[in-house]
Amino acid sequence: MAEKRFDVTHMPGVATIAIVTFLALYIPVLILVVNAFNASDTAGRWEGATLRWFAAALDNTAFRRAALNSAIVALTAATLSTVLATAAALAVTRGRHIKGQGGIFVILNQPLLVPEIVFAIALMVVLAQVKQATGYQGLGYVIVAHTTFCIPFAFLPIRARLSGMDLTLETASMDLYASRFYTFRRVTLPLLLPGILAGFMLAFVISLDNVVVSSLIKSPGQETLPTYLMGELRRNLTSEIYAISALLLFASISIVAASWFVTRTRQ
């Protein structure tokens, strides 16, 4: 192509802006991680590397309980939301045209449209009534709440995968004596799997680092990792908090990386 097109990457200063943005995003995180390994009690003075804070965190029963809660909530909410999102994606892309299909998108994207704090307060008010009526105080409320806002995140990669899938494959399966269910099990589902995994991991991460909804919905005494950290912060900024933050960060990054890897290789 001889004709020169406008290309933003050729504008002056693009590289500089990119580098500054990158540093602004990652330097604070890097400092936090470094502090988590710092032998000194006070941040900012490096006294050699240690795993002491990690050991202290793992020894801390309150942290362990919060981590376990987070894991339970994230796993269950991600699983539930992925199942629902898969069903929704199948209905939208495969089913006959349903009346008011636009409405489905409004429902699915509710968590993106309604401010999180508004949703959290609304849910808190309703669930408070339910808690009083049933007497149940468990993690179920947090799980249900997390499931709702995880659905759109699980939905997007699944739907993308489904709409990119060649419909002829399902036709071919039906042509080769497969029932609808057999076709779903042997053709649609295996081909959809990378999308489902990506959706699941995305939902898992979204649930894992949620603060606002968790802190308003949880019953007294219940903590997830982020709400536990918030509580600890109010009292004292210790190196143990850095270590816990670093752990949360590693968990999040590895899951996102894994999901990226899965979608890349299983195309």
Binding site: L169, T171, L176
Partner: peptide, 27 residues
């Protein structure tokens, strides 16, 4: 279609990409 003794060779072939040649033929 799954109850008709009639099979199709599709224009795009429509081979199942997640299966091997033998698995496709066995389907």
């Amino acid at each position: 279609p799954n109850n008709r003794p009639v099979n199709t060779v599709f224009q795009s072939y429509a081979l199942f990409p997640h299966m091997t040649v033998a698995q496709n033929v066995a389907f």
